[in-house]
Amino acid sequence: MEFGPHLLLATLEGAVGAAVLALTALGLSLVFGVMRVVNVAHGEFYMLGAVVAWFVASAMSAHPAFGFMAAVLIAPAMAGLVAILADRLVLKRLHYDPEATIVATIGILYIMQQTALMTFGPEARPVAPPFNTRIPLPWLEYGENGFNLFYPWGLSTTSYKLFVIAAAAVILVSFALFLSRSRFGLIMRATQLDRETALTFGIPVERVYSLVFGLGAALAAFAAVLIVPIQQAHYLMGADPLLLSFIVVIIGGLGSLRGTVVAALLIGMSDGIISVFFSPTLAKILATLLVALVLVFRPQGLYGKKRA
């Protein structure tokens, strides 16, 4: 394949990655923004989403679309409940002390990962996509008789991949509306701005924290359900999304949701493109070094405000 079609393909693959990453990172960013908690176990909620999706899909014997639909509903709800439980049992008792919660969420990470190993097993298991038609993509080339359209060999995508991008976009937009228009969105923003004042206005801050933690986990789980027909479910699959989400949240600016989404697109796309043309490891090395240096020299990130 020529460079042009190859780049288009890499961009499409990157866009799928970016879409899923945006959802996952949004969950992490939400939790950090509102609760000031760095949730190291975030990747495991992603893994939980994928594993639950596999259990649900394999329990349903009908057409894969039904299993997938059921997984879309059940997996995020499960992850949300587990997260709320973790918040009530552990984080609340630590009074959301930043350093203690990091250590505790590392513990939760291992507990969830190893529980998945004991129940789900060490194999990687696929979930059938609800639909999966191959769509060849056209490419323009300037030839003897001007531009002509043709379909290069190997340049194609699937309807499911396009669906992933669309679904992620829908969720992102509705989440933005939910945050800016709904009453609970207002309460969340109030809690994020000033916890004490929110408390004096009668906002049940602790309940808001629980729900936000659950919501963050549900977003990660939803992202995993979307990706699991493309990548397989595995008990160690949480590490990469966690790392990438960290990178995205930090580069976008800690606590800035808009920055998170912009950075997710940036990092997701460039990760996809660098991985195709160079090596995935090199892409990750560059991204992790970049994030460390951003934190050191520009802690507010791209969109964040200077810390008060």
């Binding site: 552990v90 513990g107 990470l109 990962q113 004991m118």
Partner: peptide, 18 residues
Amino acid sequence: FTNAYMLIAGLALVLLVL
């Protein structure tokens, strides 16, 4: 008796910090 030995480490971390 289990290959999920990191579970112990995870539990220990949570309990210690609590």
